[in-house]
Nucleic acid binder design. Structure first.
Length: 290
DNA sequence: CACCAGGTATACG
DNA sequence: CGTATACATGGT
């Protein structure tokens, strides 16, 4: 199916934005996304047009929300433009980024794992969990309309696994988690599993909490601190006012904003602005000098 | 082969 | 309450 996306939408930038750890480029300009038991391949056709491998129904029910397509990032950038020179540069550089609305459990576990790990290391740990505990996703129905020069078969030669549910991870041993490279974070993940399975933490129910209460509730999990909780708020619960501050953002604040946290000024869009700044710090001009 | 990675819990003062 | 420190592994 061919779709048109009027708003900013750059799949490559989203892939390397550090908010998602399982997105793959399957051939040039073709990206694979996974959420729950769903997989989609998206081919960039240019001129704001994309070919997607799913049905119109699935696109509307699953992927529109996933890609946050009902929000205008163009409008938000225009609104926030002009407050800080460095932010403006970051917006220019990162145009096309979006904040994905990803699976809550997957984000919680992924960002628990993320602490003191490089992004490639996070990706391989998450992938290892999926291989070991996830279920294989049936991709026989996944295809593009014209099966011409490129077929999804070649990207699907390796089986694709869903991110494991708490139930699927419940039986894991410490050795299992070690094999997945979780290291000292394994007990943290156990605590998250225990709290969710016992009902002490209901990841769907807490949607109704306001930002601050949600943030606090997520921090009751062992291994979830301020930064990880904010990442889950932003990347799973679409709380765009939350701006996670990690080493990259801290460096930007120190070097580019005179040590003054600029995010309060961006209010309900702070998290979105944070994403442009993170992306610019990590992939922008500074990095090219190295 | 060192070095560091989208931090946090814990132990101090 | 604010600050120093240990922490398991993998990627570069």
């Amino acid at each position: 199916m061919i779709i048109e996306v009027r708003d900013d939408f750059d799949l490559k930038k989203i892939q390397i934005s550090g908010q998602c750890f399982r997105v793959k480029e399957a051939g040039s300009g073709i990206f694979m996304f996974i959420t729950g038991e769903h997989v989609v391949f998206i081919k960039e056709l240019g001129d704001k047009k994309f070919e997607v491998s799913c049905s119109e129904k699935e696109w509307e029910e699953i992927w529109t929300a996933y890609f946050d397509l009902d929000r205008s990032y163009e409008d938000i950038c225009r609104k926030e433009y002009g407050k800080h020179d460095f932010t403006d540069k970051a917006i220019d550089f990162g145009r096309g980024l979006r904040i994905l609305r990803q699976d809550k459990w997957e984000m919680l576990v992924s960002f628990i794992i993320s602490q003191r790990k490089s992004i490639p290391a996070i990706s391989s740990a998450v992938e290892a969990l999926c291989r070991k505990f996830g279920s294989e996703i049936d991709v026989t129905d996944v295809h593009f309309e014209e099966d011409g020069e490129w077929s999804t078969d070649e990207a699907c030669k390796d089986p694709i696994y869903s991110f494991p549910t708490p139930e699927q991870m419940a039986g894991a041993t410490l050795d299992d988690f070690k094999e997945c490279g979780l290291g000292y974070r394994a007990p943290y993940v156990y605590d998250a599993i225990r709290k969710v399975l016992s009902g002490e933490l209901d990841l769907e129910e807490i949607c109704r909490l306001d930002d601050e209460a949600l943030f606090e509730k997520l921090m009751t999990v062992h291994g979830v601190g301020i930064k990880v909780s904010n990442c889950v708020c932003l990347f799973a619960y679409s709380r765009m006012g939350r701006a996670p501050i990690d080493v990259w953002i801290k460096r930007a604040i120190d070097e580019e904003y005179g040590g003054v946290d600029p995010f309060p000024e961006y209010g309900e869009n702070a998290g979105i602005i944070q994403q442009y700044i993170f992306y610019y710090e990590k992939n922008g001009a500074k990095q090219l000098l190295k």
